[in-house]
């Protein structure tokens, strides 16, 4: 049996933490445990990459953070956000998800216009002020580095955009709610290299204002854009450190093996 106890888990000052998990367990169907006792702290205004082989629990972990796993799994443990445990029954998950946004693996814009995609959540919330909506659309698209490409065709269907543009639209759509944290689930895995590079540039710029946690299968990507990296193996967080340390001086034997590509 491999040693699955954590090799090294970095910590931050309380004032630096944007989101913290304490002893998080995730169980499917009440019996099949996919994530074990995971306690990680995410630093404000940084990009944290979650790496690991398929089935290592990194996506399960990510989707638990904004309660997207509620209907399919049981999540035990604490998720601390502004001093509040948001993993409890009385939390309004709809409000929580407005503060902790999510971008998925496959670009999933609605079959609506670009404009309506961005304003979807705000309008569902009852925002009717057209001037305000237009401002938010422009700001969000600018932040996602998509404004110059789509400013003349905001009323066209979002499905006519390229895959990379669609994914940046999905980021803009999440930004329209002005979240604090953005969770990204392999955001570039369906994109070509040029689109990936644009997306990465966008994410790097967003770091100034947002905290990002990103699952990725692409180690180069993790190395290129993340500040911190957490390595997952078989449902355990094995090692969590600065990206430089993880890639140049890993503490755990499994981490080293994974980084060097002997499995996964």
């Amino acid at each position: 049996m491999e040693n699955l106890s954590p090799a090294f888990i970095t910590t931050f000052e309380a004032s630096e933490r944007a989101l913290t998990t304490e002893h998080l367990d995730v169980l499917y169907g009440g019996t099949i445990q996919k994530l074990f006792d995971t306690s990680l702290q995410f630093k404000r205004n940084s990009i944290t990459a979650l790496i690991g082989a398929s089935g290592s629990g990194k996506s399960t972990f990510l989707r638990s953070l904004n309660r997207m796993n509620d209907t399919v799994a049981t999540v035990n443990g604490k998720i601390m956000f502004h001093g509040l445990n948001v993993n409890q029954a009385n939390i309004n998950v709809y409000e929580l998800r407005k503060s902790i946004g999510m971008v998925f693996q496959k670009p999933n814009p609605f079959p609506k216009s670009i404009y309506d995609n961005i304003t979807y959540a705000l309008r569902a919330d009852g925002e009717k002020n057209q001037q305000k909506l237009a401002t938010i659309v422009e700001e969000s698209l600018r932040a996602a580095a998509l404004w110059d490409e789509v400013k003349d065709k905001l009323n066209q269907s979002a499905l006519a955009l390229s895959g990379g543009q669609q994914q940046r639209l999905c980021i803009a759509r999440a930004l329209a709610l002005r979240p604090e944290i953005i969770l990204l689930d392999e955001p570039a895995s369906a994109l070509d290299p040029v689109s990936t590079s644009k997306l990465e540039d966008t994410l790097k710029q967003l770091r100034e204002k947002y905290t990002m946690v990103m699952v990725t299968h692409n180690m180069q990507q993790a190395a290129r854009i993340s500040d911190y990296t957490a390595f997952f193996h078989l449902g355990h967080a094995i090692e969590y450190d600065t990206t430089t340390n993880i890639f140049t001086n890993p503490q755990g034997a499994i981490t080293e093996a994974y980084i060097q590509g002997s499995f996964g």
Binding site: N66, M68, Y94, E95, L96, R97, K98, G101, M102, F104, K106, N108, P109, F110, P111, Y120, A121, A124, D125, C170, R173, A174, L177
Partner: peptide, 11 residues
């Protein structure tokens, strides 16, 4: 994925 996208936006 449309439902997921909507849920993730707090709908």
């Amino acid at each position: 994925h449309f439902r997921q996208a909507s849920a993730a936006l707090g709908a």
